[in-house]
Computed example of a mutant assay.
Amino acid sequence: MTHHFDDAISLAPQGEGVMTGATSPAYANFIGPYGGITAAQVLNAVLQDPRRVGDPVALTVNYAAALADGAFSAHARPARTNRSTQHWIVELRQGDETMIVATVMTAVRRDTWSGHEAHPPEVPPPADVPRTPRQRVEWLNRYDTRFITGLMPRHWEGQGGAESLTRLWVRDEPLRPLDFASLTAMADIFFPRLWLRRATQTPIGTVTMTVYYHTDAAQLAATGTDYLLAQAKGQGFRNGYFDHAGQLWNEAGELLATTHQAVYYKE
């Protein structure tokens, strides 16, 4: 039996640069699919393409419209290929409509000086943090999450906090070795920062999401099925849109990815 995640991101080739897939009930959100699984499907369209050069460095997904439950086609093309870098344009379409527009940059990395300034905070280990109970929204049940701080409000009374910081441990449920696609999905693990700030169930929708990869296949394989420490905090909230910045480290404290989102909200 294949893992829920692999089933969800599975794409069937239909010719050069065209694949077909479908949304997955296992990753259903309030309405439509979980945005992280859509981002992983976009990335997988490039990862599976035999024309790909190198590994992912950056991914930006623009959610132009909400994917409806059901089939879609993925159209991927390398807009430019250089000696060691490649720039892709990917669209997910349903019928004649473009629902998702994305760009992916891949590269063949060279051994150079490396270092990070985004250091993991001091937090208790996963075993010392209670597991989040099963949720009504299906995609949340695909993850073992353990919130350290910034859990979703329990009382929606419009009395939020002064900041929107969330920290949690997360890994796939059931266990699955980490790779670029699953790391991409986990980069969207955060519920809307606006809900934490305001404790009001304001309608929202992610309009764009970017992931920067600070890892390689060997480091992901070494991370295996361990937990990731995920952190996100809002930055600006204004006139219907807000953004957040996030980071994901493995249990060894190695930075694997950073992420940014812009989210629409309605009063």
Rank of each mutant, 00 (worst) to 15 (best):
P126I: 08
A262Q: 09
S73E: 09
V18D: 04
L59T: 03
S114W: 07
P120M: 11
V53M: 14
H116E: 15
F237A: 05
W195K: 00
S84I: 14
M105R: 02
D49T: 09
R193T: 01
P121Y: 03
N239I: 05
T225M: 05
A127N: 03
P130K: 07
T145D: 04
R110Y: 05
M1A: 00
D69W: 03
Y265K: 04
N141K: 09
L248H: 04
S182V: 00
V108R: 15
V211C: 08
Q247M: 02
P133F: 08
E117I: 11
R109V: 14
F147G: 04
V42W: 12
R93A: 09
Y34C: 04
W156E: 03
A45F: 14
T103K: 14
G236K: 12
G234H: 03
M209A: 08
Q219V: 12
P174L: 01
P124Q: 06
V18E: 12
L256D: 07
G150F: 06
N250W: 12
L194Y: 00
E173H: 09
Q41Y: 07
T103A: 13
L256F: 09
L255H: 09
R93Y: 08
M186P: 01
V90C: 13
Q219G: 13
L229D: 01
E122C: 07
D6R: 01
D6P: 02
F237L: 07
Y241R: 13
A107D: 04
P177F: 14
K266N: 03
Q41S: 12
S164P: 06
A26R: 10
E122N: 13
L194G: 06
P50Q: 15
L220N: 02
T223H: 00
M105I: 12
W113H: 15
G17L: 00
P174A: 04
Y27K: 12
D55T: 14
N44V: 10
A64I: 08
R167I: 10
L47R: 15
V46A: 12
H155N: 06
S73L: 00
P121E: 10
Y34V: 06
Q86H: 01
S10A: 13
N62V: 06
A8R: 14
H87T: 14
T184P: 04
A64T: 12
S24P: 02
L67M: 15
L220E: 03
V90W: 07
P130G: 12
H4F: 14
Y265N: 06
Y27M: 05
Y212W: 02
D111K: 11
R146T: 11
D226K: 04
T149A: 10
